[in-house]
C-alpha cells in the first residue's frame, strides 16, 4: 500500500486529510509547500515511479469544473468534467495519464467542498440546458474511494440535483459503499471494459473482466444505472470474436433496462503524447502496431481499421440495445 504521503502543510487539518491519515496509519508523512514542487519535477521516470507511487495531498485553487473535450460527451447539451485526483491505482498500458503527467504519484485534492461549490455554480449557470458531469477523467472514480471517501460526498451532493446527470467512470470493484446506500437515478456507474484476453495483458493491476461484470451486476441489481465503456477499442487479429463474446457475456448478465448508455472509442493519442507513452514502454504488443497519424495530428489505427471496428461494434451493440443508447466517442 502507499508508504509515503507528501502533504501541503496548509491541508493537514482538513477533514479529508484526517480521513486519509486514519486510512494510512503506517505511512510516512512528509510536509511540502505546493504539490507542483514534487509532481512536476523534471526528469522523472513514470514507469519506475509507478512501482511505488506516493500520495500527495493538495489544495486545488482553480479549474474545478471544465468542459469536456469535443466528441467526449453523450446526450446532454452541456458536458463537464472535474478531477479531484490525478493518476490512478491501476496501470493500463494505453492509459493517457502516462503521457499527460510526468509523475505517477497520486495527487488528491482534499477540498471537495470547493469542487461542489463550483459544480453548483455551473449547474445554475446552465440551468436551461441538459447537463452531464464526468468524474474520473484524470483518475479512476472509485478505485481510491476507500481512502478518499470522495464518491459518498459526491453522491450526497448530486442527490440534490436530480435533473443533472453525473458519471463515475471506473474499473474498480470497490462498490460496497454504493451498494449500502439507495441508488441515485441521475448517477451512472460507468465501467471501462475490454475483452478478457486484452484486459489480462493491458489492464495491469485492474480487476479482471469477470469481477467487473460481477460488480456491474451487483450494482444493477441494487437499482444503479450502468454505463458500458468500450474505450479504447484495441485491435488484434481476432478482435471481432473477442469483442463479440464480451458484449454477449455482458448482455447475458445485465438487464438492458439497467444500462444507461454504451459508448465506444478507438485507440487514439495526440501525436506528442503517443511519442511520450511509446517511449516509456519497450514496445509491448500495443505499441508494436504501426499506427497512422492523421491530418489533425492524432495517432490511431488509421481509417480502414477504424471504420471496420466502428461498424462492427455498432452492429454488435445494436443486436441488444436501441441505437439511442449507443455513442461513438471521439474526444
Amino acid at each position: 500500500m502507499i508508504d509515503t504521503v507528501y502533504f501541503e502543510e496548509e491541508v493537514l487539518q482538513h477533514p479529508t486529510a484526517t480521513r486519509v491519515r486514519k486510512a494510512l496509519p503506517k505511512a510516512n508523512w512528509v510536509p511540502i509547500n505546493r504539490f507542483q514542487e514534487l509532481f512536476n519535477i523534471r526528469n522523472q521516470n513514470f514507469r519506475i515511479q509507478k512501482k511505488n507511487p506516493a500520495l500527495i495531498l493538495a489544495k486545488k485553487f482553480e479549474n474545478f469544473v471544465l468542459p469536456v473535450p469535443s466528441g467526449f460527451g453523450m446526450n446532454s447539451n452541456k458536458n463537464f468534467y472535474f478531477s479531484h485526483m490525478y493518476n490512478c491505482l491501476y496501470d493500463c498500458d494505453y492509459c493517457f495519464l502516462q503521457g499527460l503527467y510526468s509523475s505517477a504519484n497520486y495527487v488528491l485534492f482534499v477540498n471537495y467542498e470547493d469542487f461542489f461549490e463550483h459544480i453548483s455554480h455551473t449547474i445554475e449557470k446552465n440551468k436551461n440546458d441538459s447537463q452531464m458531469f464526468f468524474s474520473g477523467y484524470d483518475c479512476d472514480s472509485l478505485a481510491f474511494d476507500k481512502i478518499s471517501g470522495f464518491s459518498n460526498q459526491l453522491l450526497q451532493f448530486f442527490e440534490k440535483y436530480q435533473n443533472v446527470e453525473v458519471e463515475l467512470r471506473t474499473k474498480s470493484v470497490v462498490t460496497k459503499s454504493l451498494i449500502k446506500r439507495p441508488a441515485i437515478k441521475n448517477c451512472i456507474i460507468a465501467f471501462s471494459l475490454s475483452p478478457n484476453k486484452i484486459a489480462e495483458k493491458l489492464d495491469n493491476k485492474a480487476p479482471s473482466i469477470r469481477r467487473r461484470i460481477k460488480a456491474m451486476k451487483d450494482l444493477a441489481d441494487c437499482g444503479w444505472l450502468i454505463g458500458l465503456r468500450f474505450d479504447p477499442l484495441i485491435y488484434t487479429n481476432d478482435w471481432k470474436v473477442q469483442y463479440s463474446e464480451l458484449i454477449c457475456e455482458i448482455m447475458g448478465q445485465i438487464n438492458v433496462s439497467s444500462i444507461h448508455s454504451v459508448s465506444y472509442g478507438l485507440l487514439r493519442f495526440p501525436k506528442k503524447m503517443y511519442k511520450k507513452i511509446s517511449n516509456l514502454h519497450n514496445t509491448t504488443g500495443l505499441f508494436a502496431f504501426p499506427l497512422d497519424i492523421n491530418n489533425n495530428g492524432v495517432t490511431s489505427y488509421g481509417k480502414e481499421i477504424e471504420s471496420e471496428m466502428y461498424h462492427f461494434i455498432q452492429k454488435e451493440l445494436q443486436r441488444y440495445l436501441p441505437a439511442k443508447k449507443i455513442f461513438h466517442c471521439t474526444g
Binding site: 485491435y235 488484434t236 487479429n237 481476432d238 500495443l286 502496431f289 504501426p290
Partner: peptide, 15 residues
C-alpha cells in the same frame, strides 16, 4: 521497414 511492418499488420496478434 515501414513497408515490411505494414504489409501484414492486420493479421498479427498484438496481445
Amino acid at each position: 521497414l515501414e513497408n515490411n511492418i505494414s504489409s501484414n499488420k492486420k493479421n498479427r496478434d498484438y496481445i
